[in-house]
Design a protein around this nucleic acid. Structure first.
Lengths: 211, 211
DNA sequence: GTTTTACTAGAACGTTGTTCTAGATTAGGA
DNA sequence: TCCTAATCTAGAACAACGTTCTAGTAAAAC
């Protein structure tokens, strides 16, 4: 049985070289407008090399997308598991995202604006698996805070939009050049807003109102 | 010199026929994957006709996008100007969006997932003008509520993300088939969350609302 | 050293967006 | 009704781009 003990050293470098070139091109002119030849020139490699590693232009786009999501998710989990209170955890979801987007402009812009990417069935499933696993971890982390009344009980599918929706929308506008202040600069506002919308009704306020 | 007093009757019909066909194709397989020939077949017209009316595939996509934004904006303003209190106005922004997306699935999905559309310089400017005018109207409407303390004073660029971000994110997931309940079904939750994050810290100062 | 596998190169192919030219259709004026 | 100009449609032809293919090179396994 042949064992591929070590991937050839140059391979990983070549792949990330192509991915970096692709991200750069996608950022400059958009996915559709970048040609394979653009990427080839920017990565200083041949067409054959690109197709050997990724199979298609869509393969590059998919791998870039999934790898980006995984990096973002991993960074969140690292910071989240250090939190001891519901308030700190909710606010960390917002501030971590703000900082990450500010530090990784190009990749963040790619992730935010490539939602309708036509991906292969395998890539879609891969992405779903990654997302499901991440969401499960996050929900397991937050479950106790909902259980003990520190956070509101809401329909499950509304938690993520309520907490992350605003800062994501802000980030999208900032990345499009429409806002001047970086997400990192205004993160406190969004962290506060998220916590306002999410904290348990501990005060004398009414809990609910007829819609 | 002949003046085109009335646009030829068939023209408007032909254009909207092509736009409808394009939206249908874009929804089914994505913008990049739909060919001019797909649209031609679906709209039952010729290639020449398409290029006469829109100039390019991107021209179709741009016009569809801008027209959709205008319809959405117009619907919001109609409903918004009926509101008399800050709470009702903020909640209306959320519920109107929920209802509109639920009623216009395809178009809403197109608007939400085509942000990175490569548009011509003119189309970009056109869209900016439309957006700026709309945002100015909305802010003029809300200004009094901020002035009298019914709503929080925040950095201007944060209002829209805080109010609309969550329901937009929810809508995106629903349109992608990831959530089962339509935005219209869960709009009350998001309206409540938006108002929680937005209302003045000292309690509402609207006449009708008791502390 | 020989074999096997991983990788690269670049020409060739087929599809697709776009252009072009000729012709059909309609509106307005005698 | 006929004429003229403008608008619109048709579909073949062109050029660009994603992809495939064949041959060849470099590195690991034995």
């Amino acid at each position: 049985m042949v064992r591929r003990s070590t991937v050839r050293a140059a391979t990983a470098a070549r792949k990330s070289q192509i991915l970096d070139a692709a991200l750069s091109c996608f950022t400059d002119v958009g996915i559709e407008a970048t040609t394979i030849d653009d990427i080839r020139r920017c990565a200083d490699c041949s067409t054959g090399s690109i197709y050997h590693h990724f199979g298609s232009k869509e393969g590059i786009a998919s791998e870039l997308f999934i790898e980006g999501v995984q990096r973002l998710n991993a960074d969140l989990m690292t910071k989240l598991t250090r939190c001891r209170t519901a308030e700190r955890a909710v606010k960390t979801v917002v501030t971590q995202y703000s900082d990450w987007v500010t530090r990784n402009r190009d990749l963040a812009g790619y992730l935010l604006n490539s939602r309708d990417l036509a991906m292969s069935a395998e890539a879609v499933e891969m992405l779903h698996d990654v997302n499901r696993a991440h969401i499960r971890r996050v929900f397991e982390f937050f479950a106790p805070f909902v259980g003990n009344g520190a956070m509101q009980i809401l329909p499950v599918e509304t938690y993520i939009p309520i907490i992350s929706g605003p800062i994501q929308d802000y980030a999208r506008h900032w990345l499009a050049g429409q806002f001047t202040d970086s997400p990192a600069k205004v993160k406190a506002v969004f962290a506060e807003a998220a916590w306002s919308a999410m904290k348990g009704a501990d005060g004398p306020r009414d809990a609910k109102e007829p819609g």
